[in-house]
Amino acid sequence: MARPHNPLPGLGLSLGITLAWLGLLVVVPLAALVSKAAQLSGQQWLAIITDPRVVAAVRLSLGAAAVAALVDAALGLLLAWVLVRYRFVGRGLADAAVDLPFALPTAVAGIALTALYAPDGWLGHILQGYLGLKVAFAPPGIAIALAFVGLPFVVRTLQPVLQGLDRELEQAAVCLGATPAQVFWRVILPQLRPALVTGTTMAFARAVGEYGSVVFISGNLPGQTEIAPLLIVTKLEAYDYVGATAIACWLLVLATAVLLAVGWLQARQKTAWQAHG
């Protein structure tokens, strides 16, 4: 059997190492999770995940993560655009600061955000006092914390694509009579869309599982401001391992479904373009 010649040697070895690591780090823990949850019968499992407290927590987690991901998409696009297209004093510093949510222990971020948005905090004081908007210890606070941790995903996936954009395409569009808004919607955004979707999806995935930065700001009222990861931890602390893994599995299923759906949509769009020809 002739194998297509590959200029890089060692496919077998490198593939083996890759699969071994993938197995040890990803597949085995997930398999353990599933096997633990498998101790439950289908009915028991259903009972756990349809428990109102669990339903509320999962809904809050997914909802807040979705809102946070959309906020990240808009803000991240703006931030990446400014960092790539403009030269200004402090640009390097701003660029480095984008990674802070990656580097900072999430608990630190959570405490800082709580201090800021709490009713007696700088911003919380203004928002609640003058606008009547409760941020900390309410869903908006959760979304803010999740948007904070997800922002770098969008910025860092968009930056290289923005840098590689051919400026002549924009000039061509302007010559053809396009307004700045038309240039953005018809020429720039279509080129950024795949990277934007990828970055937003990663921000969403990260937000669904985020724990550290949220527990301080959310208030953790069961059924109201309690997120799914916290519920899992609560169950673990109560030695309810099976219950915890059941929720974890459910979260895993939902998150995977969302990721698959996004991937499918993107693939469909791509083939739709190709099928055009």
């Binding site: 051919d166 395409l169 061509a172």
Partner: peptide
């Protein structure tokens, strides 16, 4: 309203 043809054509690839 000038027509401009770029060296590398600058067609909209999407």
């Amino acid at each position: 309203n000038v027509g401009f043809v770029f060296q590398h054509f600058a067609l909209f690839s999407h």
